[in-house]
């Protein structure tokens, strides 16, 4: 496996969803490639930064208390008007 192929599989490598044979090749490549090890570390660090930023930016949001009633009204069967 070369650097380009490793980059192609980097997300699946992090997800641990690679086929066993490909994962083994990726690990052999990583052992010998400081550049890809660094890139992998950066991907993980970027993921942590993004996750934290996205969570912080939405942490104060909460549901409107009237949501349940509004949905309930919308899904309730319509009553027929008396003729």
């Amino acid at each position: 496996m070369n650097c380009k192929t490793f980059h192609h599989f980097v997300f699946e490598y992090l997800d641990d969803t690679l086929d066993r044979a490909i994962k083994a090749k990726a690990e052999v490549h990583l052992q010998g490639c400081a550049s890809c090890r660094g890139a992998l570390d950066r991907e993980q660090a970027a993921g942590r930064s993004l996750r934290a930023a996205l969570q912080r930016s939405t942490a104060s949001l909460s549901l409107n208390p009237g949501l349940h009633d509004r949905v309930q009204r919308a899904i309730a069967p319509k009553e027929k008007r008396p003729t």
């Binding site: 996205l54 930016s57 939405t58 949001l61 909460s62 549901l63 409107n64 949501l67 509004r70 949905v71 919308a74």
Partner: peptide, 23 residues
């Protein structure tokens, strides 16, 4: 509910729209 709202707010970048979308 809350998780959907937060994700919707990120997706559409507007809290009121996010509330409508979750509803």
């Amino acid at each position: 509910g809350e998780r959907l709202l937060r994700s919707a707010a990120l997706l559409c970048d507007d809290l009121h729209e996010a509330e409508d979308l979750v509803q």
